[in-house]
Nucleic acid binder design. Structure first.
Length: 289
DNA sequence: CACTTGACCTGTCCGC
DNA sequence: TGCGGACAGGTCAAGT
């Protein structure tokens, strides 16, 4: 669920909340979620000060003064929520938040800072993880070596999207968009939304697309990612930002989770089907195979 | 090699 | 109301 816009929204929140804070104590009850040894945690995390918060694809990186970095993947249900000292619930109206007092039953790891504030890593389904890695080793980990270009960088021109997608010429455009080694950060929501924007059927084979198709897809993809970041991301079930609040992109979505509702362009009812093994939303009139 | 499917988990929703 | 099963969707290992 957390895709590029959601992870970027969390990054922006954390980058105003975390730098300058020093880790006093950590706790993790699920080794799968935070597999580093106690010795590593004591040596490189406890006592370290946070210097910056970065993002690459759907991965967050929290840099530490110890020259180590906390690398975090939220997978489907991961949350990273910051709470100031003494704040038991999220700020604002409870309806803005999906979570109450922390830690709760899905809390997998906790960082406590010297000023009494906390960062909670929640993950209902335990697919996500936090790992402590030497900062200099980051570019060498498998994920970083394989991951494709960032779609919101200035050099992401339509020809680059075309050339990357064509590496997967024999598969469907939806499967190619979801492949992180092709383009970084696109998941199920923004694949469906951008394909609708480009009037492309998700099951079209990449090798049948024309330059005009790639151009429209590029513009649609960049537009939906930017709009979603502007709306604080998409909250379907689990996603919340660093302050525990929901994102509102889905009320602007054209097809995702809108089966049965009219296509914003032509009024035809949106259908839900299955492409590349995923639930897939589309307009059968605007998006022809 | 290129591509597809299944496993990893837990909670929710649907039909009987 | 209870219960089994499908489904949710990011990534990697295993299968075709």
């Amino acid at each position: 669920m957390p895709e590029l816009p959601e992870v970027e929204t969390i990054r922006r929140g954390l980058s105003t909340l975390l730098p300058g804070r020093t880790v006093e104590r950590t706790e993790s009850t699920t080794p799968k979620s935070f597999p580093n040894s106690d010795a590593d945690v004591r040596a490189f995390l406890v006592g370290a000060k946070i210097t910056s918060v970065r993002r690459r694809a759907k991965v967050l990186m929290i840099d530490l003064s110890s020259s180590y970095t906390l690398v975090i993947h939220l997978k489907m249900t991961g949350q990273l929520v910051f709470r100031s000292k003494g704040v038991r619930f999220g700020a604002g109206h409870p309806s803005d938040s999906l979570i109450g007092e922390l830690p709760d039953k899905s809390t997998r790891a906790t960082l406590e800072f010297t000023d009494g504030s906390h960062l909670f890593f929640n993950d209902q389904r335990k697919f996500g993880w936090v790992r402590l890695v030497p900062t200099s080793e980051l570019p060498n980990i498998d994920f970083m070596r394989r991951v494709g270009p960032e779609p919101l960088e200035a050099d992401f021109i339509w020809q680059l999207l075309r050339d990357r997608l064509q590496r997967r010429g024999n598969t469907t455009i939806k499967a190619a968009l979801l492949d992180q080694s092709v383009i970084a950060g696109v998941g199920n929501i923004y694949a469906d939304e951008s394909l609708w924007g480009a009037k492309l059927h998700p099951a079209r084979l990449v090798k049948t697309l024309t330059d005009s198709d790639f151009r429209r897809l590029h513009d649609a993809l960049v537009d939906v990612l930017r709009l979603s970041i502007d709306k604080g991301g998409s909250t379907d079930k689990n996603y919340v930002n660093a302050e525990g609040k929901k994102g509102s992109y889905l009320s602007f979505a054209s097809v995702f989770r809108r089966e049965g509702q009219p296509c914003p362009r032509c009024g035809t009812a949106i259908i839900k089907t299955r492409v590349a093994g995923r639930g897939t939303h589309l307009c059968s009139h605007c998006q022809r195979t």
